[in-house]
């Protein structure tokens, strides 16, 4: 019974983070800030949801852990690839930005 309640709470937290991540992708001003929200919040949200499901059904726990780990390993790599590709494509940073040491180095 307790594992049910704990799992449901974990899933609820995860789902809320998934929603916040989506909201972040919608609201942020440029590609890089969208990646910040889209990667961090959705990764933790999915992690929490999947582990919560594993806790509710103990026989699936290890498999859910494998899926969660796979997401934890691959999502940052995908985000890095998108960010790098956008910069190479010449997507501008938002006007709010204060410093760009990557671009400075490129110009020299």
């Amino acid at each position: 019974m307790w594992n049910m309640i704990f799992g449901e709470i974990l899933i609820l937290i995860g789902v809320i983070f998934l929603f916040l991540g989506s909201l972040g992708v919608f609201r942020m001003p440029d590609v890089y800030n969208r990646l910040q929200a889209g990667t961090k919040c959705t990764t933790l949200g999915a992690f929490s949801t999947i582990v919560g499901v594993g806790i509710i059904e103990p026989s699936w726990f290890l498999k859910s852990l494998v899926i969660a780990f796979f997401l934890l390993l691959t999502n940052p790599v995908a985000a890095h690839a998108i960010g790098r590709a956008s910069y190479k494509m010449g997507v501008k940073l938002t006007e709010k930005s204060v410093v760009d040491q990557y671009g400075e180095e490129k110009d020299e």
Binding site: F70, V77, H80, A81, K88
Partner: peptide, 18 residues
């Protein structure tokens, strides 16, 4: 061709067998 960054190639090496 633009070579991929170190992060992508290293991650590919570890994920490929899985």
């Amino acid at each position: 061709k633009e070579p991929s960054s170190l992060i992508v190639s290293t991650a590919a090496r570890y994920i490929f067998p899985l």
